[in-house]
Every structure is written in structure tokens, then in C-alpha cells.
Amino acid sequence: MHIAEGFLPPAHAIAWGVASAPFVVHGVRSLTREVKEHPESTLLLGASGAFTFVLSALKIPSVTGSCSHPTGTGLGAILFRPPIMTVLGTITLLFQALLLAHGGLTTLGANVFSMAIIGPWAGYAVYKLLKRYEVPLMVAVFFGAFVADLSTYCVTSVQLALAFPDPSSGFLGALGKFGGIFAVTQIPLAVSEGLLTVLVMRLLVQSSKGELTRLGVLLQSKGTRPGTRTEKSEATEDAGAPGKPAKSEASRTSETGAST
């Protein structure tokens, strides 16, 4: 989804920069407030940023015969809400633009808009919606991360189609072209990202129950009071199974032996 340096006409580059700036400013404010009020969350913030760092460095082969990379923004958006993820994503994009010549400074606004703003917000919205309908936590996490990843690449396709409409078929023709390159390639990668996000969330449920409860990830799952810790953790463990349909049956056999 990285639009290369100089590959957006100046007017577009400026417009996307202007559109992204308020989100980044608001994100920095949310981030400093979070760190000030809850210094203990710094570690988990670092881990969320690190997840994006790893995933956006991995270019993975896809069914279309090309390579692309996940974004890793779903996790941070679910944990800390999208504004904070905007900052973490922007840092990652800046690192890649400056050191790797991947993306660029003139296209930073557009890339931030797709990967660090729309992706996190879309993923977060889906996650929240699913949780409202009492979908198991891990299923909501999977689809949140999936949508955060895929929507990012759809936005990139729209951005490029707006800047480079096809001479004969116009905006829609170009959208089909860029969508074919980005969005279709991205579908299996978005599945991978969803699964990896579920994996990290499962590890977090095991290791950082208190933190997840404070952030509202665990508390809302069953409406249980914080006092009944054991019950809640069992509920989330069960929730893990339907997230991966392929093996939920196999794993169910040993369900009784589940340990916290």
C-alpha cells in the first residue's frame, strides 16, 4: 500500500497531507494522555507498535502471484483505539520512508490516511460492531484485523485511481486496475493478519489479563464483574475456538483439560 515517493501529483499529495494532519495531531494528544494517566501501558503500547513494525516488514507471497505485506494496525486499534494507532502507524511509515525508500515523504499523507487512519478506524468499527452482537472476542478480533488490513489497500487503490484516472474508462477503470493489484492480492494476507492478531491477542489474554480488562477488551465480553476472573478467562478461551473453524473440532476434544 506504500505509494512510492513522488508518485502522487503535488495537489493530491498536499490534499492527503492536510486530510491526515488533524488525525495525527489528535492521535499524539491521545497518546500522551494515555502515557501520562497510565504509565504502565507504555509496555503494551510498545508491543503494539512492534507488531506493526514486524508485519509491515514482511512481504508475503499471495495467490495473485505477487507479494504484499500486512499492516498490523488492527491490534493497536482494538487495544488502544484508533487515534493512538494512527501515531504508531505514522512512525512505522516514517521509518520506511526515510530509511528504506519505501513509500515517501511526499506520499506520507496519503499512506498515513490509508494505513494509519482508515485501516484502524474500519477495523475498530467492525470489532466494536461484532462485540455489540456478542460475537466471541477472538472472532471479533479476527474480523477487526482482517478489515483493518484489507480496507487499507482499498483506500490506496482509490487514492491512485483518483490521481490517475484511466484515459478511456476513467476513475472506475483505474480503480479496477489498482484494485486488482492491491485489494485482490491482499485478501489472503488479510486472513493471515487476522490469524496472527488472534494469536497475539490469545497470548495477551494469558499474560496481561489485568491490562486487557482495564482497556475494556476483556470486561465487555460477558458483562462479568472484575471479581470473577476465572470464569471470564474460561469464557475467552472458549471464544478462541470458533475463530478458526478448521480446527475448532479437534481442539474441542481436549477442552476439559484446558488450563489457565
Partner: peptide, 24 residues
């Protein structure tokens, strides 16, 4: 298995052969 980002650059030059990146 080329990168999708690089393919997008190629697609841009197909649509607008005269386009020159204005910043490096």
C-alpha cells in the same frame, strides 16, 4: 512474486506514460 507496490508504479506509467515522479 514482485511487490504490489512496484506493480502499482508500472500501472501508473501505463495509464500516464508521461508521468515523472517529481520528488526522489
Amino acid at each position: 512474486f514482485a511487490g504490489a507496490d512496484a506493480q502499482a508504479e508500472t500501472a501508473i506509467t501505463e495509464i500516464e506514460p508521461d508521468y515523472e515522479p517529481w520528488f526522489t
